[in-house]
Design a protein around this nucleic acid. Structure first.
Lengths: 206, 206, 206, 206
DNA sequence: AATGAATGAGCCTTCATTCAT
DNA sequence: CATGAATGAAGGCTCATTCAT
């Protein structure tokens, strides 16, 4: 172990192939979900679109549900990366600036793949993935709460958990509805919405 | 009941029976959706629970989708009745009082049949009835907007459509999340949430 | 209810149809088992041979296993009818005569549908039908034991359960092997086998 | 082991490895058949348990059936070794002693691996290996017949083939049923059964 | 030779819908 | 109009076997 040859740790070919297959499957599932809807997302069809056999699908995913879960996971992870970064970036900013930034990020995050976002929002509750999804929800609540506690002095007296609930619900709803209403996606409109939401939230906290 | 006039213009028997059958079917669908989940809501099962034959089901509903649509319709109509009444009741109240009342009603409305509400929220998008549901959404926006325009003088200058969007999104989200979080349904907690939401919205409008 | 019309209690048509469908399915299963083997007995194929849709198959049998069970049941019942009748007929005969008759019947019973018998003998253990099959086995043991106890005086002293075990094992094995060896099925040969088996068993009991 | 000659003519390494692989595969198949049942005996699973890749499995066995055949072969060979030895040992003993010994051996042989025995008894017919198994059956019949012919003088007049058929059927059935009935496996019970079966057979032959 | 990813025919089962009675 | 038996397309999944590495 210690004398491992200095050669590049080249992952063996098969590992790469596996990875490619898995990716193709998740990607195919997402594409079908978006373009054809949940009903059309049969395992056979997914495999076909992924350019893979059904057998291979089941080599990597124990069930159809697992595939959907992977899509959800991937999407949520993408969003959470943006969100986590935003909170890091905002940690020391005063409320007004922080909220403005977070609202912007929320809307942007919902933009990442709006159609997929919509489909997942609809399908998630069905599959038993509530737990995982709620984990993300909890994480967000925690991030908000932490921020609020750090900036307690800038705000009126307020239960942090409650305040977090109010803020998250509000910001998320507006971001969500904004994305759902294709009409509101003009750059100008987004700017207005960010302003308004910031006002709404900051007004509430102060 | 006893003094019912003996000459009731009883709609011909078959018409009454039809009505009863339709009701039984819609009711059975709703019950199954709530108690057994969407997966178990097969037409055969629905017919069975409704105490009717599958054939009869298809006599009254051209497809399974039509049945689900009817359930959605019924549920939304129930909610909208409450909501419309609330707006009528609130039309002349000052903002603070009106908002408080509307928030309360929103949470109550989400309570009407929380499980059904949840299931429908999940299934609606899938069943292509978004359009109809959006009609209700539009109606609500219109009601809010109308109220806001009537009370323009009590508020800062604000685009009514925009304000309506903000208010509806916010109130609905909080009501929705409140119901989803079984934990928040204590009477005391609801009171707090009403207070907070009112403050949030009123603060924004003023 | 009391004044039920005197008309013949004609089973309604659908009941007859159901019965016909069920019969066709069981028969088709048996035929396939015999002619094509267990592997080929897929539900779709069974339905096809029965001239019925798969859907109908599942209307009457909850699973493939249930169908096989029905075939087994039917076959066993056929055999047991013969066997029960034989025991009734033989109850008061002296050992020698009784054994001769029972051996004859055993071989005849294995003849009822030799190919099916063979296939089932092979398949039965697989499916969890051991219980039911063992019930028949128990019944036979009980019948033998009862006979032996009634005729105790004609025999040497012997534990009835043990004697029943020996007799049943022996007679059944010979009947079974006789049927499996197509060669032994000449009328003459059967006669010899009956003689020999009777001698074997009676010699043991006396 | 220690004094093994240093110049062991070790078969070239690959040959030894082959042998080991083949053994591992047959062993794995047997184990799975016994512990997990026929349904679970997929080639992939067998390979896995054998610690070998599926590819290798197909290097040594052209099909799954071939593997099962090998297991059957191995088991039967094991049993036949015992049986052949018994016949050799018994060749010159008088009927009574011989039969007693053979019955004992038959029960013992069925004990060698009762679970495997049971599974194979179920699966053999399905896997088209009846022919090979029947070869063993023939061998046993021949052994019995040979013994009987050598001891003709101790017996009444009797067709040797017929007598062999009767004896083999009887002894085998009792041994088989004894093993199937776990309850009968007490040492005491086995003793009784050997006594009884011996009496049954000897009584028949004399 | 060994590996194990890939294949795909085919199995069991469900369910929306139709239609003879 | 009601009934419910019948339909059959389609779905999820398994597994013996192949083949590129």
């Amino acid at each position: 172990m210690a004398r491992k040859p200095p050669t590049t740790p080249r992952k063996n070919a098969s590992q790469e192939r596996s990875r490619a297959t898995v990716d193709a499957l998740v990607e195919a599932t997402a594409r079908i979900l978006v373009k054809e809807g949940f009903e059309k997302a049969s395992t056979n069809h997914i495999a076909e679109i992924a350019g893979v056999s059904v057998g291979s699908l089941y080599q990597y995913f124990p069930s159809k549900e697992a595939l959907v879960a992977a899509v959800i996971e991937r999407h949520n992870e993408e969003i959470m990366n943006v969100v986590r970064a935003a909170f890091a970036e905002v940690a020391d900013l005063p409320i007004e600036k922080a909220v403005r930034r977070l609202v912007t990020v929320a809307i942007e995050a919902h933009h990442i793949d709006p159609n997929l976002h919509r489909v997942l929002a609809e399908q998630i509750p069905r599959s038993g993935h509530l737990a995982e999804v709620e984990a993300y929800s909890h994480e967000i609540h925690a991030l908000v709460r932490t921020y609020l506690e750090r900036h307690r002095k800038e705000m009126r007296k307020l239960d942090p958990a409650l305040a977090a609930f109010m803020c998250v619900s509000t910001i998320e709803a507006i971001a969500h509805n904004t994305v759902l209403n294709g009409e509101m996606l003009s750059e100008k409109m987004v700017k207005v919405l960010v302003d308004e939401t910031t006002r709404l939230v900051v007004g509430y906290l102060k």
